[in-house]
Design a binder for these strands. Structure first.
Length: 471
RNA sequence: GGGCCCGUGGGUUAGUUUGGUCUAUACUUGUGGCUUUGGGAGCCAUAGACUCCGGUUCAAAUCCGGGCGGGCCCA
């Protein structure tokens, strides 16, 4: 492909890069279902590993529920059905038989898990119950699909918890927010936390906290969400426990969901006209070694390159030796496209000088690294890269937020922050007029200064809202 | 839900308006070889396609109908 100006042609750039860098093969003949290629899957698995690390740290247990859910279970929570009914895939036949009870492919796993939670949760000593799973979910998306960002089969993370009461569930949500903090820093993805307006909360939730980031298009993209269910599901699914007083009480529940969108976001936010830029934290290959061969020294250089590879591997660096029969320039471009954070060139000059040439994808510069203790120096470069990517992305998000006083001041490509009286009608007016969506009110809650007015009706505005065009 | 468009080697594409000269164009990629290697090398050889089914016609990549697949716009 010709170099594409990422800023001007983001859609083309993105669609092209995910295939060209070998993340997915979009030719699978079902809309919204792509094939994960090894390189893309590796990146996803590394993101998953970060999630697992956080889940383990916070004592969640990993589970894995079946993909199929009986219609009878799905039907138990009315709002949930209303919200997801239109995008469910159904299994109505098995072999030659029509099924008495149709089965659906999970669009999310509440209705699969909660009948089981009802069996598992008996006593207050069983609580809190903190589980999560990493599975694929299915949603019959009718809009245009896009690799990682809008799919019909979604690689999905979902944590589901049960608690003794509302307060404990709230503590869980606080913990979820803290998890996100770590996690986003690792991915170098900044985000905005908002409590979704009532008309946009998750189907069945008491309230929903949305995690949104901003893409280079100036539109926001939801990275994940955290839901307080209160007892909305526990009642229909009969999740009760016996408290210390011997009474049967409904559990309070929360969920936390994220998806392969995280990968799409990393690609979209950090990439440049040369291709992807992976933060070292999730780069499938953190450092690639390109041997510079010339007549007469091939074996010697290759031997040194292999030695270097072993040394770095021993240091825990994900390193790859590119011994393909291409010229160096071709390899440079290839690995830049794939987003490898560090390229190590080793030729006779370097061997004789006791160093390697390190080309840093993020910093865009080349530096000489001493062979002695190279691993340590490389890790420092990685740290610096994480920091640069994080700061850069964060300032883009911060700079795109504009405070406005009247909703007709909303500018495309920005996230507007405005006063809001809290009336749903004013919310809809904003959405209809601007074509943008109301992300929600700030989390944690943020008081408005004296005299702040609703950007629609001019009444007293007790809270802020964020307004943005979304993906 | 409504409307529109598209389907040619692995990828991008010419050809479709006006059926025949298509034994299908070009670039890229793949494979084998020679040569080369500090920023996408060159040469030689070679492989590879008209989405499927039906219709019209002496003749279909081209026209018509349907299926499947893909894309776009509006609500």
């Amino acid at each position: 492909m010709n170099r594409m100006r990422k800023e001007e042609e983001f859609n083309d750039w993105y669609n092209n890069i995910v295939e060209e860098a070998g993340l997915v093969d979009k030719r699978y003949p079902v809309k919204g279902m792509n094939v994960w290629l090894p390189y893309g899957w590796k990146a996803m698995r590394l993101i998953d590993a970060l999630i697992r690390r956080e889940m383990e740290r916070t004592e969640h247990d990993e589970v894995c529920f079946p993909l199929l859910i009986p219609k009878t279970e799905f039907d138990k929570e009315a709002e949930h059905i209303a919200g997801f009914g239109a995008e469910v895939y159904w299994v109505t036949h098995a072999g030659n038989n029509e099924l008495d009870v149709p089965l659906l492919l999970r669009p999310t796993s509440e209705t699969a898990m909660y009948p089981m939670f009802s069996l598992w949760v008996r006593s207050h000593t069983d609580l809190p119950l903190k589980t999560f799973q990493l599975v694929n979910t299915f949603r019959y998306e009718t809009k245009q699909t896009k690799a990682f960002i809008r799919m019909r089969e979604i690689h999905f993370f979902e944590a589901h918890t049960c608690h003794v009461d509302f307060e404990d569930a709230e503590r869980q949500i606080a913990e979820d927010l803290e998890i996100m903090k770590h996690f986003a820093k690792d991915l170098c993805i900044p985000y905005l936390l908002t409590k979704r307006p009532d008309w946009d909360k998750f189907a069945g939730a008491y309230y929903t906290v949305g995690l949104d980031t901003i893409m280079p298009t100036g539109r926001t993209l939801q990275l994940g969400s955290i839901h307080q269910y209160k007892t909305n599901f526990a009642v229909p699914y009969n999740i009760t426990y016996e408290n210390e007083g011997g009474e049967q009480v409904h559990a309070h529940q929360t969920t936390y969901g994220m998806s392969e969108r995280l990968l799409g976001t990393v690609v979209g936010i950090h990439g440049d006209e040369k291709g992807i830029i992976f933060p070292p934290s999730i780069a499938p290959i953190q450092a690639v070694i390109v041997p510079i061969l010339s007549k007469g020294n091939q074996e010697h250089v290759m031997e040194e390159a292999r030695k270097l590879e072993e040394e770095l591997k021993a240091e825990g660096i994900r390193v790859h030796l590119d011994d393909r029969d291409f010229r160096p320039g071709y390899k440079y471009n290839d690995w830049e496209l794939r987003g490898v954070p560090l390229r190590l060139e080793i030729g006779m000059r370097d061997i004789e000088g006791g160093h390697v040439m390190a080309a840093c994808r993020v910093q865009g510069k080349k530096i000489l690294v001493k062979r002695e203790g190279a691993g340590e120096q490389i890790k420092l470069i990685f740290q610096e890269q994480q920091e640069i990517l994080w700061q850069k992305a964060r300032s883009i998000l911060e700079e795109s937020i504009r405070t406005i006083e009247d909703y007709n001041q909303y500018e495309e490509g920005t996230i507007a922050k405005a006063g809001w009286c809290g009336e749903e009608e004013c919310g809809h007016t904003i959405e209809d007029f601007t074509g943008a969506a109301i992300l929600g009110t700030p989390v944690p809650e943020e008081e408005t200064p004296e005299g702040t007015r609703c950007c629609v009706c001019g009444a007293h505005a007790p809270s802020w809202i964020y307004i943005a065009k979304t993906h």
